[in-house]
Design a protein around this nucleic acid. Structure first.
Length: 465
RNA sequence: GGCGCGUUCGUCUAGUGGUUAGGACGCCGGCCUCUCACGCCGGUAGCACGGGUUCGACUCCCGUACGCGCUGCCA
């Protein structure tokens, strides 16, 4: 039987990092085994679900590249199905109508806790066999009272619970909508889900759901409960995909790579391409313990991905940042080369546009410290000589540029640094840039020559030594 | 409170009865070097605690502590 998994978020307004990883685990597992990855929107809580929130889910999944198969299922479209199944359960004696009010319930739970130490419904209505005309009511599941519920979790191992610990949970609310606990079973069966991969916070619910499967005569899927992600502090903004994507300028490769390794591992490997992830991912390698989200390591992983992904893709990622600043570089050898030299120094997508101003615009002023140190009158002859040689250089390649500078060093019997640093300041206005040859090539012959000359002019006006 | 689950360097993790407990981030030191980086080399630091089981426990069992979750007509 082929594997079918699903990601079933409720539209709450943003994609929490934990949900993102659950989606990723599901998607990776499906792609790994050649199965099917489905999306279901759990919008039975009518008060909280909005269209915008659903859109956020779509956008986040698309950005992450987690494409789903088949049509999206909305629980709100299936209300009559749940009602029918619930009635079937009542007829079969597995569920019952409960007319206890919320106030009564509160009192019951207080009493139960005092008497038994456990805060549960006392099953007052369980044997009343009330009909549909009993007035305002909910439908509860008649949980088995004895025995134990056990299952083998693919991640957590054996999970055991005494049935007597379980409550007669509500399946259908007063307003006729199903609760999560009920809808999830009906839908997973309908969608022929074979593996339920979700967060550990659902692990206790699994027993209720297993009882439901049994009552319904359904074959339960396999369960895999992934550990929680801790340490997503609220003060840094919301712990959502959108936040990290925008505020940190992450690539999808970086975020996914980081998040997948938080709770899953494949030997000592840290950096994965998406293809490698699909090939390597397996539920048996998912850790049981929860992990802490660490922005520092996330940044490192993102750096690694920035250096690894194809330049064409990187160009797509950073272009919006350039356009935001009114720059519109053309995709091509020049732009790719520039990205290639900057990526070694970049952590976030925003770093690219931040660090290449002098490749686009003229130097407005020299960084004070750098100019003071490197733009001295003694350097004027060298800078002019460089300008002259670049002007006459036949082929404008990094190799040819390197040759010019090496030659000049030999002639002047000096180290490259003595020439490269002043040239760097002259060309970029600052003391830190990528390699000098690449920088010169990227700036281009014409601007290189004019900037070198302009620097000597500045020296004449400013350096008194 | 009750129930459930978890616990290896500061953090992410490998480990499945016998290892000098491995890797990664960070941090520290060095090398490389035209600056800044990258990279490379080295160092730092860990099996929560207490009992068992065993010739031998990070690995198995029990307990304690701590953490997290559930205990909603949220999911």
């Amino acid at each position: 039987m082929s594997v079918r998994v699903r990601f079933a978020p409720s539209p709450t307004g943003f994609m929490h990092m934990g949900n993102a990883r659950t989606a990723l685990f599901n998607w990776l597992y499906a792609r790994h085994v050649g199965g099917t990855f489905l999306l279901r929107i759990e919008d039975t809580d009518r008060e909280r679900s909005t269209k915008e929130a659903v859109q956020v889910i779509y956008d986040s999944l698309k950005w992450m590249g987690l494409d789903w198969d088949e049509d999206v299922i909305f629980q709100s479209d299936r209300l009559d199905v749940y009602r029918d199944v619930a009635n079937r359960l009542i007829d079969a004696g597995f569920a019952y109508r409960c007319t206890c009010t919320r106030e009564e319930l509160e009192a019951i739970k207080v009493r139960m806790e005092a008497e038994t130490g456990q805060k549960r419904y006392d099953r007052t209505c369980r044997d009343k066999k009330q009909g549909p005309d009993c007035g305002e009511h909910v439908i509860r599941f008649a949980t088995p009272i004895t025995g134990e519920s056990a299952f083998e979790d693919l991640i957590q191992g054996s999970i055991l619970k005494q049935q007597e610990e379980l409550d007669d949970f509500i399946m259908m609310r007063t307003d006729g909508t199903p609760t999560y606990q009920f809808a999830v079973v009906v839908d997973d069966e309908k969608m022929r889900i074979t593996h339920v991969i979700r967060g550990v916070d659902h692990i206790d619910n699994t027993h209720d759901q297993l009882n439901l499967y049994r009552a319904l005569g359904f074959t339960p899927p396999q369960f895999a409960h992934a550990p929680r992600i801790l340490g997503l502090s609220k003060r840094k903004g919301s712990p959502s995909v959108e936040y990290y994507r925008q505020a940190m300028g992450l690539t999808r490769e970086g975020l996914l790579n980081y998040i997948v390794r938080l709770g899953w591992s494949h030997g000592d490997q840290e950096i994965f391409s998406m293809e490698e992830l699909i090939a390597a991912f397996d539920l048996k390698d998912v850790n049981r313990a929860s992990g802490n989200f660490d922005d520092v390591k996330l940044a490192w992983v993102n750096e690694q991905q920035l250096r690894k992904i194809p330049l064409e893709l990187l160009a797509d990622y950073v272009l919006p940042y350039f356009q935001e600043k009114g720059l519109n570089p053309e995709k091509g050898p020049w732009f790719y080369r520039m990205l290639d030299v900057i990526r070694l120094r970049a952590t976030h997508l925003g770093d690219f546009v931040d660090r290449c101003d002098y490749f686009f615009n003229d130097i407005k002023e020299y960084e004070e410290k750098a100019a003071k140190k490197h733009l001295k009158s003694a350097m004027t002859p060298v800078l002019l000589e460089l300008a002259d040689r670049f002007e006459k250089l036949g082929e404008w390649t990094e190799e040819a540029i390197a040759a010019v500078m090496t030659r000049l060093c030999e002639e002047k019997d000096t180290k490259l640094g003595k020439i490269a640093q002043p040239a760097r300041v002259a060309l970029s206005g600052c003391a830190m840039t990528p390699g000098i040859y690449e920088t010169i090539w990227l700036i281009g012959r014409e601007r290189t020559v004019s900037r070198l000359k302009a620097a000597t002019q500045w020296i004449a006006e400013n350096d008194q030594t």
